[in-house]
């Protein structure tokens, strides 16, 4: 027999699930005209975004490229650094350092993205302008650099818990043979925790791809096709944040922004689903 409380809680839980579905549905409805009039292929691969011109040009290819470039760039830096930090915390750091660093990492996640963006824009961008005599220092690279710092704590805490989930027997059995801790880590712990570590990196990627403020303030906001890591660009979230307020409700421009939002949503959602699949597999895995 289910109790009243249980039924109530189940109901609320279902509502939250439905909310997520309704977000997808709603965004699809709001952007319907774009998919039918412009067509998905032309919208996603199109390189020109000019919603006020005649005829309107709606293509988010450059923005998608910028998003991928910044997020992957951040990952290239954050993944190795994060893994090393996690290994340090889980296996090598003395107790007092761990006790200090772990809460500190939690605090890093508490610093809002606008502050990261602001610091990046005033410190990093200035640095590039002064030292490399650029006219303006914003670039996809700057955005990647700040995103690296932002996703680092997520990658660290997820991979640390993956490493800690390795049963202590493996450590004992290896160390009792006389091998060193680095050898143990590289040959036993990392292979054993690899699913969790990969999950941590995917998590970081999802965070980096969906982040708005840092890229808005650092990527330079120009709609040219990015040709290198150091060119400027406008990732999807920045486009939405910049143009939503000025677009006329119901216009194709407005709907184009929702279509862009939907693309971003589906992209990040599939990353998260992949992650859920990973965790599910791990829980039912042999180890």
């Amino acid at each position: 027999m289910q109790e009243k409380t249980g039924t109530f809680c189940l109901l609320v839980a279902w509502c939250s699930t439905l909310l997520l579905m309704s977000i997808i549905l709603f965004m699809a409805l709001e952007s319907w005209a774009v998919w039918t009039e412009v067509g998905p292929l032309k919208f996603i691969l199109g390189l020109n975004w000019n919603p006020l011109a005649e005829p309107q040009q709606l293509g988010i290819g450059t923005m998608i490229l910028s998003t991928l470039w910044t997020a992957l760039g951040a990952l290239i830096m954050a993944a190795p650094l994060g893994l090393c930090c996690a290994i340090f915390l889980a296996e090598f750091a003395p107790g007092w350092i761990t006790n200090f660093l772990r809460p500190a990492i939690n605090l890093l996640t508490g610093i809002p993205s606008v502050v990261y963006g602001f610091l990046g824009a005033t410190v990093l961008v200035k640095f590039f302008e002064v030292n490399f005599s650029m006219a303006s220092g914003e670039s996809l690279f700057c955005a990647s650099l700040v995103l690296t710092v932002m996703v680092l704590p997520y990658i660290i805490s997820a991979s640390e818990s993956a490493l800690r989930a390795v049963p202590p027997e493996y450590r004992q059995a290896s160390l009792a043979l006389g091998v060193s801790k680095p050898y143990l880590t590289l040959r036993v712990l990392i292979p054993l925790a690899k699913k969790g570590l990969l999950g941590a990196i995917i998590l970081g990627f999802g965070r980096a791809a969906g982040e708005t403020m840092a890229v808005l303030m650092l990527a330079g906001n120009t709609m040219v096709l990015p040709t290198s890591w150091f060119s400027k660009g406008e990732p999807l979230p920045a486009l939405i944040a910049l143009e939503l307020g000025t677009s006329e409700v119901g216009s194709l421009h407005y709907q184009g922004l929702f279509a862009a939002g939907l693309v971003l949503l589906i992209f990040v959602l599939s990353i998260n689903l992949l992650l859920a699949l990973f965790r599910w597999n791990r829980r039912n895995g042999v180890n």
């Binding site: 939250s16 977000i23 982040e211 939405i240 689903l273 992650l275 859920a276």
Partner: peptide
Amino acid sequence: TVQCMAGLPSIVTGLF
């Protein structure tokens, strides 16, 4: 679902 919602980009929430 809760996990996915936690990963939702905040700009998408804003847009919705």
